[in-house]
């Protein structure tokens, strides 16, 4: 299973902070977006418009990254920490 985590405004859009997908041992982020778009097309659009960064297992990755069973994918809106 792959875990997808939502934060900040994405969590509000999704109405949940995470969900899980069974996409086999290895898959592409494009396939993960396809799975998300089935129920959350608004978030899939933001991803395609590159308005969100993506982290896999706590490191930011490019959108052509390959992901594996057990990975944690985080969808990250622009950061605003500090003050």
């Amino acid at each position: 299973m792959i875990t997808v985590k939502y934060f900040a405004n994405l969590k509000q859009i999704a109405g949940k902070d995470e969900e899980r997908f069974d996409l086999g041992k290895e898959t592409t982020l494009d396939q993960v977006w396809e799975a998300i778009s089935q129920t959350l097309p608004q978030i899939a659009t933001l991803i395609k418009e590159k308005k969100i960064m993506v982290a896999v297992n706590y490191d930011v990755v490019s959108l052509d990254a390959v992901v594996h069973d057990g990975d944690e994918i985080a969808l990250l809106p622009p950061f605003s920490g500090g003050s």
């Binding site: 934060f7 900040a8 985080a74 990250l76 809106p77 950061f79 605003s80 920490g81 500090g82």
Partner: peptide, 11 residues
């Protein structure tokens, strides 16, 4: 660098 790289969000 904190503002650029650290996943913290302000509401």
């Amino acid at each position: 660098e904190l503002k650029r790289t650290t996943p913290i969000w302000k509401r």
